[in-house]
């Protein structure tokens, strides 16, 4: 009996060998680029020097030395956090408004060819890299040759976009909307095509106008999807987009009051300037808080809708 079971177990293992082999490369990539960097977070408690690396450098004395820097220079971390969270919230609000509006409009239109064309044209900006986007923005806003700047100059307004951080809140929102509306509207459009059309039939029989159908039926039906998308974005609230900021503004120091999100800050201080102590503390703070946010938003999403599992 015991022998039998052992034999069976061995058999299972043998036939599973191809599965282990097929999973192995993926496992290795995950270990190398996700799990070992997680272990590397201990650098926040080390006196980093290149020779020792993460694991060979000495522990700081006291252990929280890097964090005392962090708390003594709270303004930097606070500004970065405020920018990251603030921009992400604005991106979500405006991104959702445009994406939902586009999806609803698409779903009301009957002309199939028009729908297809619109969808593919609106999706196109998603394929544009941030570097290309930066070149486009520059062609629009640069004070000597930019299309918009020239236009404003003709109207007698001299406005230098590249030295006014405030304007970049709007510019970044516009770019994000431009970039993401096509992509996100596909998600909402997908949710809309799943709605049972008999509800609309009934509403029409009752004499409801299109506008009433949209506000009274479509929007409420989209609410779960919007909520889930919101919770998804809460998990990413503390992640700043370094590529976007470099692509669009080149980390222009004049614009940093708005564009200095956490990732930009960590990049500037550590990769660029080699100041590991402070950056590692900020980086650890971002990772841990992000993790908490993801876990909490996951829990809420599960509670809100049992069928969805979030990332």
């Amino acid at each position: 009996m015991k022998y039998e079971r052992r034999k069976k177990q061995k058999l299972i293992l043998k036939k599973d060998i191809p599965l282990y082999l097929m999973a192995l490369p993926g496992i290795m990539v995950l270990i190398a680029f996700s799990y070992i960097p997680m272990a590397g977070m201990i650098v926040a408690f080390k006196d980093y020097h290149y020779k020792g690396g993460i694991f060979g450098s000495e522990w700081t004395d006291p252990l929280f030395k890097n964090f005392t820097f962090f708390f003594n220079n709270m303004e930097n971390a606070l500004r970065a956090t405020r920018n990251t969270v603030g921009l992400n919230i604005l991106f979500f609000i405006f991104g959702t408004i445009f994406a939902v509006a586009a999806a609803i409009m698409l779903s009301e239109i009957r002309n199939k060819r028009f729908i297809k064309t619109c969808q593919s044209v609106m999706f196109f900006p998603y394929f544009i890299s941030w570097m290309v986007m930066g070149a486009i923005i520059n062609a629009l806003l640069s004070s000597d040759v930019g299309w918009l700047s020239k236009f404003l100059q003709k109207a007698g307004i001299n406005f230098d976009f590249y030295s006014s951080p405030g304007a970049w809140i709007i510019i970044l929102i516009v770019v994000v909307v431009w970039n993401g509306t096509g992509y996100n509207s596909v998600i909402y459009y997908g949710a809309l095509t799943g709605i049972d059309t008999s509800i609309y039939e009934a509403a029409r029989v009752d004499g409801a106008t299109k506008w009433q159908q949209i506000t009274k039926i479509t929007l409420p039906l989209l609410r779960p999807t919007i909520t889930i998308m919101f919770l998804l974005s809460v998990g990413k609230m503390l992640k700043g987009n370094l590529n976007m900021m470099i692509g669009l503004t080149n980390l222009n120091p004049l614009l940093l009051p708005v564009t200095d999100v956490i990732d930009v800050f960590v990049y500037r201080s550590s990769v660029k300037n080699g100041e590991m102590a402070y950056a590692s503390a900020v980086s650890l703070y971002q990772s841990v808080l992000s993790f908490l946010l993801v876990i909490i938003s996951n829990k809420i999403a599960k509670w809100y809708d049992k069928d969805t599992s979030l990332f």
Partner: peptide, 27 residues
């Protein structure tokens, strides 16, 4: 277990700095 092994990396990440140090200093 494998699915969770992958899924966990979406929940938690070490961040850019440790990633950068590992890639340049060790790999």
């Amino acid at each position: 277990k494998l699915a969770f092994f992958a899924y966990f990396t979406m929940l938690f990440s070490g961040g850019m700095l440790p990633w950068y140090l590992v890639c340049t200093r060790y790999y």
